[in-house]
Nucleic acid binder design. Sequence first.
DNA 1: TGTTGTGAAAGTGTTCACAGCC
DNA 2: GGCTGTGAACACTTTCACAACA
Lengths: 240, 240
Amino acid sequence: MPTQPDDDMTSHEGPAHVLGMIPAASANRLGIYLRELERLERTEISTVNSRQLSENLGWSDAQIRRDLAVFGLFGRRGVGYTVKELAASIRQILGINRNWDVILIGVGNLGRALAGYRGFASNGYRLVAAFDNNPALIGTKIANAPIYSVERLEELVPTLQAQLAILAVPVDHAPPLAQRLSQCGIQGILNFAPVILKPVQTDITCVDVDLALELQRLVFAVVSRDRSRRDLESTPEDAT
Amino acid sequence: MPTQPDDDMTSHEGPAHVLGMIPAASANRLGIYLRELERLERTEISTVNSRQLSENLGWSDAQIRRDLAVFGLFGRRGVGYTVKELAASIRQILGINRNWDVILIGVGNLGRALAGYRGFASNGYRLVAAFDNNPALIGTKIANAPIYSVERLEELVPTLQAQLAILAVPVDHAPPLAQRLSQCGIQGILNFAPVILKPVQTDITCVDVDLALELQRLVFAVVSRDRSRRDLESTPEDAT
DNA sequence: TGTTGTGAAAGTGTTCACAGCC
DNA sequence: GGCTGTGAACACTTTCACAACA
């Protein structure tokens, strides 16, 4: 076990995000840390340690310390992390310490619900316009944003300067729209159509959310639990 | 390199799901395979190989073969997989080859959109009742399901025999409702409140979906791409 | 004392590469 | 010829366990 303080300077490379080597698993948890920290901010708790976070989030304390260290977010030994400080740092890393202008494509049931969703509005996201192909909707407003015809996408999006698009249209329309959006200068698409939009263009980022898939995952988890419970009946074993 | 045909019988243990040792990562992809297979069914393609699936889904062909092998889903060497057969097998593994009765808690914007969501209705999920605490809604209907007061949860859910609940309520209400639902006999909760419902009870399964978190992930992916692009300018390298 | 930050170990997931079968 | 199924290598992630420090 080498306990030498240091024998090779190249092993001191600092936080991973400076080098662009962020573990994907850690990045995906950052938002959840922030959500929890914002809850703590509201309860006026000013310091938190990895054990407390681990109890509330359901992960190990070691994982939490490692995740935060990856981003160069340091606590104080013997004390823990300062809630406000940590929250502010995570906001900066996530890129939500500024406003983002968003357009919505598809003003159906889901699009309408998303436009009014508090979690979006209250976090620096501004809905600046919506687009639909239903003539009855065009010219009306949703969440204070005007609804335009999708035909005017190429004309309007460049002047709107929006960076993000929420895509809530039927599955067949999604891939061509993604293509068009990337050509209008949109940088990221949050896609609710049940199709993977990855292979669309290299200079655009997509996150796919399929609600039916989530329900399937739930069903699978339920039947798996059932199955393994039945299996246990044949091989009964007491846990220590 | 040991090329002996077999030297130890214990290495022949059959598909993992018989032993309850399913890799979580593979399980999470099963639903996406099914979605793609159902698309192929509609286009009347009857056979598919791992390479074609890999092109449409954006993963490696080896991963697809390994995922399917994990579940004991075998194709034919030299040919590929039979679309219909594979889809039917996956439906059975996922547990969606039967009907599931679902209740909805929280008939706000999001709950309303979810109730009308095609992806839910068209897949063997039946909305049998909804619950809300808004007196104006109680007694009305949504997607053909009656809306009751949440106070009547304990009274009605056991007779409804629903197995699943969709929870679309404000964050503060979610944990206590999850607790009550598990005591009513609900086996799985699809939770849209921005809180992790894991530590609620051992005999219930939760899947958490936080739409604001997905938007955050998108923003992070966009700024990460930006940051690494800027980094590349300092260390320019031509890809081959 | 208490808690972080982190090497090293253990565990999990993905890809390679090719034997085996059609 | 084509394509699957899979051992082995590799890569990534989590946990362990403890030195470092307040």
